[in-house]
């Protein structure tokens, strides 16, 4: 497969206590797939993403992308963060251009052209000279998406990218991400704790549970390219995932009447 995650474990020591953030995670991802890592906080979904993106390698086990083991971040894969990661001292255009500044084969003019094209793609061509702090949260995240697309990556990692946005803006950006993906089929690995978001976006949903963080199950979302948030099959899938989470209570419950 394109991405192979094999027997990945991750331990942290926090205040002298060792705890397991990821336990024996195995997962394979195809090129062009949209994967959502779904689970409550503490389930290790962001830890897993950081391991795949190379920011924080696993304690044991391997992550292999396209035949190469991941040890550090690569500019071929881009991460989009919840709090956008824009540089406040640069204007919007220069923020987007950052994606190509380490590429010596691209001229300054070409770099600006590509950046402007991607700003246009996310609907922000009129804000090239604005400062990030002058934009709303949703617009800032669009700038981050334009920056990611400018790098023309093979994989886009998204770490709860819409977590800080209001519900309406979030839905709009979910639609945008789907539209953008239709144009250029990047592999996307998307971390979220929002079941609806996962079902709406993903080809496969990786359901994770905490203490210790592990993959509970992987669900294929066969809803086709145009999805209806209020459709019957959409609800069925949400229901199914909700059931998986409640199965976590596998201890006996005592009743007294």
């Amino acid at each position: 497969m394109y991405i192979d995650i094999t027997n990945v474990n991750k331990q942290f020591t926090h205040k002298g206590k060792l705890f397991t953030a990821l336990e024996n995670v195995n997962l394979s991802i195809d090129r062009g797939e949209f994967i959502c890592l779904l689970g409550p906080s503490g389930c290790g979904k962001s830890t897993l993403l950081n391991a795949i993106a190379g920011f924080d390698p696993p304690s044991s086990g391997t992550v292999v992308i396209d035949g190469c083991e991941v040890r550090k971040p690569s500019s071929r894969n881009v991460t989009i963060f919840q709090n956008y990661g824009l540089l406040p001292w640069r204007n919007v255009l220069r923020n987007v251009e950052l994606a190509l500044e380490s590429r010596k084969d691209i001229t300054r003019a070409k770099r600006e052209e590509i950046a402007r094209k991607n700003l246009d793609l996310v609907g922000l061509s009129g804000f090239a000279d604005a400062s990030p702090h002058q934009l709303s949260g949703g617009m800032q995240q669009r700038v981050a998406i334009a920056r990611a697309l400018t790098a023309d990556p093979e994989i886009i990692f998204m770490d709860e990218p819409f977590g800080a946005l209001d519900a309406i803006t979030r839905m709009k950006l979910q639609d945008d991400i789907r539209a953008i993906r239709k144009e250029n089929r990047k592999t996307i690995i998307f971390v979220t704790h929002d079941i609806e978001e996962a079902v709406y976006l993903a080809d496969r949903v990786v359901v994770m549970t905490p203490n210790p963080g592990k993959v509970k199950s992987v669900i294929k979302v066969e809803l086709g390219p145009s999805r209806n948030r209020t459709g019957q099959d959409f609800f069925m899938l949400r229901q199914k995932i909700l059931e998986i989470f409640s199965m976590k209570h596998d201890y006996p419950i005592e009743y007294s009447i």
Binding site: P73, S75, N77, V78, N83, G85, L98, A99
Partner: peptide, 15 residues
């Protein structure tokens, strides 16, 4: 996050 972004886009050691 700024350092993560820099690492991600391959900003050099001195740059």
């Amino acid at each position: 996050i700024y350092l993560k972004v820099a690492r991600n886009f391959g900003v050099g050691r001195f740059e």
